[in-house]
Structure formats: C-alpha cells, structure tokens
Design a protein around this nucleic acid. Structure first.
Lengths: 195, 195
DNA sequence: GTTAAATAGGAGCCCTCACTCCGCTTCCGA
DNA sequence: TCGGAAGCGGAGTGAGGGCTCCTATTTAAC
C-alpha cells in the first residue's frame, strides 16, 4: 500500500485541485478539467480514483475530517459555552465551500451515509462533545440533538450563501441562529449569558 | 399569443411532469425522460421550451409565484405576528421540494436574478409585507431585512431536509429558527408573546 | 366538409464526457 | 548503475444527452 513518491504527490495534487475546481464550478465539471487543474493526465487521475464519484467522495471525506478536527480543537481550547458559537462562526466563514460540497454530493446522488461513514461518525462525535458541554453550562437549549445541530450547520451555511459578500447581513443571520440556540425564556441558568 | 387548445394542454402537462421529475431526480435527468413523464414527444417539449434551461426556469418561476401567493394570502388572513411563523412552517412543510429546486438551479449555473426577475420581486414584496407587519407588532427583531429572511427560509428548508421524516427533529429545528427571529432580550414589547 | 396553419412526434445528428489501453517514463532497491 | 516494477499520459471508445428537422396529425376558421 506504500505509494511511490511521485504517486503520493500526484494524488495530493489531484485532491487539492479537485476541491478547488469542484467548489468553484460544481460537480458537473469534467474530470479532464480537474486533471488539467492538477497538472496531471487523465490516466493518472483515473488510476488514483477509478471513478469520478470516488474522487468526489475523497474530497468530501477530507473536508469532513478537517471539520471534525476544528471541532475537537475548539472543544479543548475554549470554554464550552463559547466553543460552539465559535465553531459555528468559523465553519460558516468557510461555509460557502462546505455547503457547496454538501449540495454537490446530494445533487450528485451520492449516498453520504455509506460513502463517508467513518468520517461522518467523526464529525458527529466532535459536534457531540461540543454540543453536550455547551448544554451542561446552560448556554444551549437542552432539547437539541447532534443531528439537529448538523442540520442547522448546513442550513446556516446555505442561508449565509444568500447574503453573498454582505458582511452585515451575514451577522444578522448568524445572530438569529445563535439566539435560537439559547435556551428559551425561563429555562436559563446564570451561566447562559449572551456571548 | 393565444395557443391552440392542445398546445396549452401539453404545455401544462410538461410543466407539471417536469416539476415532479426534476424534484425527484435532480437537474441531471434527461429531457427525454421529462417528455416521457409528460406523455409527450421530445419535439413537443422543445417547441414549448427551446432549451432545457428555459424549462427549468419555467418550473422555478411557477414555484416562486405560488410561494408569493401563499405569503400574500397569509398576510391578509392572519394576524401579523402569527402570519410569518405560519408561513415559515407551511413553506418548510413543502420545503424539501422548494429547496431542492433552489439547489438545482444554483448548481445548474442558472442566474436566478435575471432568469426569474419578476417572480423574485413578487416574492420579495410578499415577504416584505409579512416581515414588516410582524416587526411592527414586535413579534420579530427589527434589524432583519427581507433578504435575510429569504436566506433564512432557504437555510431552514435545507436544515430540515437533514431531519428527514423525523417530525420531532423538524420541530426542534423550527423552534430554533422561530426563537431566533424574536427580538432579543430587552427589546420586547408586550405584544411579542410567544405563539 | 375543406383547408391552411399550427402542433405533435421521434429518428438522428453531433458533441461532450467518463473511462480504457498501452507505449513511454520515472522511481528505487540491490 | 541498472533492471524491473510502478506510475504516467493522452489518443481513442462508447454511451448518453441536448437539440433539429421533417413528416404526419390535429385544430379551428369559413
């Protein structure tokens, strides 16, 4: 399973280029264009990813891993109450990208659950720790579940796409979501101060 | 501009079938398949919509009109505070569909703004009246703008897609959004009771 | 009923795109 | 250094899909 040095290099370049191109132009770009962007022949691309779908999955799995890493890092370095909101802000800042990928995949008919099972579990765990500690400090409503949070993440991402480059609009939308995450009136503890 | 009777009938059938098929299978379905679903020859389809893109636009514009109608109707028949939340609930209940269409279009590279300009303006006006009256009664935060609301609508729709058929999850996600729409603490009037 | 115009239908054109095949190049252990 | 294995590249293939074009059919005015 040890790849030759040049093969490893090429694989990395393909993934990198594919991510860029796929995000910019959608899943409909031709594999040839991806290969060109990577500076690689089509044959090489298809050696590493025998199917266009597998290439897309590869890109997506990479993103999921990075997302989970971000979440774990924040969970350790920040106080629970703020960790979740920071994560949302941060994830959404790069969000056009992540959202575009999710949209790509669903529209391409790729079954996420079995395609990227392991990576998805990782994200789920990471968000779980983030969510549960935030709930324990009373910063976030207790009825929320991890799956809801993932949905909200995707939704926020999409909502913010509509704001385009208007930063104030982004902030207003984010404010709606972050306020909505807080426990409803009468269920707040002294810890649940607004950030 | 008066179409012959059979032409009018076929046009309607094409739009109806296209909406169904496009929503179910995405923009990548072949025009031939749409024609088959409509019980019509390909030639006929292309007479009515000279381009696949124009067909998709036709479907989308229809949806926008219906969405605007819903909003206007609610604005008249319901008290302002509840009208907006009812609209959100209702729009989102049929939301997988609407959202799927939006995703389709953006991923298909169709420029919504010039494609469906008029219809989009209509939606904007309808949501504007809904939003502004809700803001005047103090039921909704005053900083929100119509564009934000549209973004949030799309986002909510997408978030709820992730809930799948889990109705309780849907409700939890909706609760987050609806709570987030209310004015933040200290800016509420006596009118802004929770629904 | 007749007729001309409008419409329907579908075989086929052409182009794009995912993927294959194989001769050539590069790597790397001995 | 050198040999063979691993990797590279890109012309070519086959399938699929958007769209055209021309003939048969339907509509509706008189």
């Amino acid at each position: 399973m040890t790849l030759r040095a040049d093969a490893r290099r090429n694989r990395a370049r393909i993934l990198e280029a594919a991510e860029k191109v796929l995000v910019e132009r959608g899943t409909t770009v031709s594999t040839e264009e991806i290969a060109r962007a990577a500076g690689v022949g089509i044959g090489t691309l298809f050696r590493h990813f025998p199917t266009k779908e597998e290439l897309i999955q590869g890109v997506f799995v990479g993103r999921l891993h990075r997302l989970a890493d971000d979440a774990f890092r924040l969970a350790e370095s920040s106080d629970p109450g703020k960790a979740l909101t920071s994560f949302l802000r941060q994830a959404v800042a790069q969000g056009e990208v992540k959202n575009a990928l999710a949209a790509m995949l669903t529209s391409a008919g790729v079954d996420l659950h079995e395609a990227a099972g392991e990576a998805q579990q990782e994200v789920r765990r990471a968000l779980g720790t983030l969510l549960h500690s935030a709930q324990e400090t009373g910063a976030v409503r207790r009825d929320l579940e991890v799956a809801d949070l993932i949905g909200l993440l995707a939704g926020t991402s999409r909502a913010i796409e509509y704001a385009g480059s208007d930063v104030t609009a982004r902030d207003r939308i984010l404010a709606v979501i972050l306020d909505g995450l807080r426990p409803p009136d009468g269920q707040r503890t002294s810890n649940s101060s607004r950030e």
